[in-house]
Design a protein around this nucleic acid. Structure first.
Lengths: 139, 139
DNA sequence: TTTAATTAGGTATAACAAAACTAACAATAA
DNA sequence: TTATTGTTAGTTTTGTTATACCTAATTAAA
């Protein structure tokens, strides 16, 4: 029935609005409302690998070392990353995420977690279980 | 319980993946995979007003007429809009969305509609009704 | 000498704007 | 009625600023 579609549309529209709210909360809290999609991708790349150096990040992102230096300098100014000089080899610097940088790198997961927190607060346990059961069927 | 949160996280993660799939389908079908966020915002502005002229769009977007001319020329090349000269006043041109332009302007709604179509195909009517009921409670 | 990162210097593109311009229209004086 | 003048809508030219990249040269450590 078309009314079912309509109703589903409405409830999901509302849910999407809540998600957007949670997401922009995160970026606002970090003071990074106009960070770009590419910058987030860089932070994620750093987060998803361990002990990332400048050469390694150039490799991962398919760019050059100067590009990485520039980008990282910007991120340092944005308080998203810091350099950690290797104690074993003074030439090497590891790129480390700050708390803020990690928050942005994991923004999607964090958004979803906040959204789920709100859902759990609005719903009783039975509803949550039913919701999990029903949505688990969607392919 | 933490397990509930975990389960909710999983099912919603899956749902978000489906949504992304539906969304990129739309952009791929239009051949506009790397359209920018700003460009989509312009198309939406055109869609949300009637009989938009160049001056009007400059006003709406808080930019200048040359910027609009440039942007619209690009959109014409992308086959998202076309100019329609006013028959009453030869100086005026209305900016009209093509089928493709409208698809992009309404990409969010279209994405949601496709997602809902998939949900309806995966679920029976009772599940849909329950889903609407439960999600309707979320604030 | 080789390697890791940085600096210096440069290119291409996006997204804007100011100023000058063209074409169309409106009002009016000859 | 027609020519003149001023106004408006959109375009072109030219220039600015910022992003995102590059190559080549340099510095410092190994």
């Amino acid at each position: 029935m078309a009314a079912r579609r309509e109703h589903l549309f409405e409830v999901f529209n509302c849910l999407i609005a809540i998600k957007k709210e949670c997401s922009s909360q995160i970026f606002t809290e970090c003071g990074l409302v106009d960070i770009t999609v590419k910058q987030v991708a860089y932070l994620r790349a750093i987060d998803e690998h361990t002990d990332v150096t400048f050469s390694r990040l150039a490799e991962i992102t398919g760019t050059s070392k100067p590009t990485v230096t520039e980008m990282i300098n910007k991120f340092v100014r944005m308080e998203c990353v810091y350099r950690e000089r290797s104690s074993a080899d003074g030439r090497i610097a590891y790129i480390r995420l700050t708390r803020k940088g990690r928050m942005i790198a994991k923004a999607e997961q964090n958004t979803l977690n906040r959204m789920i927190e709100r859902m759990i607060q609005s719903l009783d346990d039975d509803d949550v279980d039913r919701l999990i059961e029903i949505l688990g069927k969607v392919r």
